[in-house]
């Protein structure tokens, strides 16, 4: 489906402010261009949107449901609200649920200071969780000579899966299991170190928002610096052919 669709210039309002957009853009694209902040976690520039974290939910007039800004295309006359008491409460709840789900111990994490979950908690003012932590037990896969996968720190945003399959074309990583038991595995749940498909490209390390996938070597607490912007660059170079 690469036929040229006619792209129109439309107007919509975001938080009451009229903005112009082209009809193939998403609400998130347009909001960003116009300086509106919509929190996101599973979204990453250059990857196909996934709509799973639900942080970017916005109110759209005329819709009886909240819509994910990362997956909702703009339309003529659309009235979008990116911030309200209700949205703020929902976003805080979603962060709390994520923090209770796995074992996120910022103080001993390689991604301390470079973690999007941590900085999102700060940005949204989430200073404690009201529900009990679940403290599940996940094993760490350190069999690969360069990378480590630690599901204890995973938020299942699937960025690693998407980058591995859609950008690198290897599809080594995927999600196994369902519900609260879902976890990232390599190949058919084999040791990552034995993977015949992994190209050792390290894109998964770069896109991981937390410390769940990290590089081995001289990396201690708070030393996991990332280049998440690289993926958007690669996608752009390829002219968005993954879409």
């Amino acid at each position: 489906m690469s036929s040229v669709q006619s792209v129109q210039i439309i107007t919509l309002t975001i938080d009451g402010k009229p903005v112009g957009a082209s009809s193939d853009e998403t609400v998130l694209d347009v909001a960003k261009q116009n300086g509106f902040f919509i929190p996101t976690l599973c979204f990453l520039e250059g990857l196909i949107p996934y709509g799973a974290c639900r942080l970017c939910l916005v109110e759209v007039k005329g819709s009886n449901r909240l819509l994910p800004a990362c997956m909702t295309k703009v339309a003529e006359g659309m009235e979008v609200t990116t911030d309200s008491e209700k949205l703020r409460s929902y976003r805080r709840w979603i962060l709390e649920l994520l923090f209770t789900e796995r074992n996120h111990v910022c103080s001993v994490c390689v991604a301390n200071g470079f973690c999007e979950l941590q900085s999102m908690a700060e940005a949204l003012g989430m200073d404690h969780v009201r529900l009990p932590y679940l403290h599940p037990q996940f094993s760490v896969d350190a069999t690969h000579d360069r990378f480590v996968s630690d599901n204890n720190r995973c938020i299942l945003c699937s960025r690693c899966v998407r980058v591995c399959s859609d950008i690198e074309g290897a599809h080594t990583l995927d999600i196994m299991g369902r519900g609260i038991h879902a976890r990232i595995v390599s190949d058919l749940d084999d040791a990552w170190g034995n993977s015949p498909t992994c190209t050792r490209c390290s894109k998964c390390v770069q896109v991981c928002p937390t410390g769940a996938i990290k590089e081995k070597g001289r990396r201690s607490v708070g030393e996991k610096f990332k280049r998440r912007d690289l993926i958007a660059y690669i996608a752009k170079l390829r002219g968005g052919e993954h879409e």
């Binding site: 799973a52 639900r54 679940l134 938020i155 369902r178 519900g179």
Partner: peptide, 18 residues
Amino acid sequence: SVSESCGKCVPCRVGTTQ
């Protein structure tokens, strides 16, 4: 609902368990 949740979105995956 806990056992039927697919686990893709956060509120259903963690919310049903909580």
